[in-house]
Simulated assay, not measured.
Amino acid sequence: MSAPPTGRLIRTERGYDLLLTRALKDPLAEVWASVTEPERTARWFGPWEGEGGAGTTVRVHLTAEDGEPPAEVRIDACDAPHHLAVTMSDESGGWRLELHLTEHEGTTALQFTHHLDSLDGLGEIGPGWEFYLDRLVAAVDDTPLPGFDEYYPAQKAYYEAEPGL
């Protein structure tokens, strides 16, 4: 069974923003910990090492990217527990990413943005972020993590059609 795609694209002055949202049943502080503490990020994204904080760079070992070297992640902005902006880079280049969290009555809304210069590779990028964000939801909910085959190639055509533009 494949997961339904949820992302949408918005044109910007610099290119495009890929927006994905999720609702998490946990309060803001718990979700913030799940996206910033290395032992918690290890459950859904990958553990990281280094000194966290705005202006620093950490190394992330992506758990679902078997055999790939760690990614360098520069923390561009960190306004705990609401906003995190990073630039993630590896041998394929750099990705500008942002996360905004808000809480309402014990539920946390997550808005994830991947700032894109072009739409090259969107058919792979979109399903990849859907996969990782659903892994976050599963880790917070303490349910089994989804497999990548639920996202790719099933969502590729949706993203190649440039949703939301």
Rank of each mutant, 00 (worst) to 15 (best):
L19E: 14
G106T: 02
H100K: 09
L62N: 07
R59E: 11
F148Q: 08
L84Q: 09
R74W: 02
E68W: 10
L84F: 13
H114A: 10
T56I: 03
D26K: 11
R8S: 11
T87E: 12
P81S: 09
E124Q: 08
D149H: 13
H115G: 01
D79P: 00
D117Y: 07
G15V: 03
T107M: 05
A139L: 03
V58T: 01
E130H: 15
V86E: 04
R135F: 02
E124G: 12
A23V: 12
L97S: 04
P163F: 00
V86H: 04
G15T: 01
H100P: 00
P69W: 06
D66T: 09
V73W: 06
G55A: 00
T36M: 02
L133F: 12
M1V: 11
E30T: 15
W44K: 04
G93H: 02
L145T: 05
G7W: 09
D120Y: 08
G50C: 11
V60M: 06
G128T: 13
D90L: 03
T56W: 01
P127M: 07
E103H: 08
E162C: 13
A154I: 01
E72I: 02
T63D: 10
E150T: 11
E150K: 04
M1F: 05
Y152Q: 14
Y132P: 05
F45C: 04
D90T: 10
A42R: 12
D26V: 09
S2D: 10
A139I: 11
V140W: 04
G147D: 14
L136V: 10
L19S: 06
T41G: 03
S89G: 02
Y152S: 15
P4Q: 15
Y132W: 05
T102E: 15
K156V: 10
E39C: 03
A85L: 13
E160C: 07
I125T: 15
Y151H: 07
P163D: 07
D90C: 05
L62W: 08
K25H: 14
R43L: 14
T36R: 05
L20S: 03
L62F: 14
P153L: 09
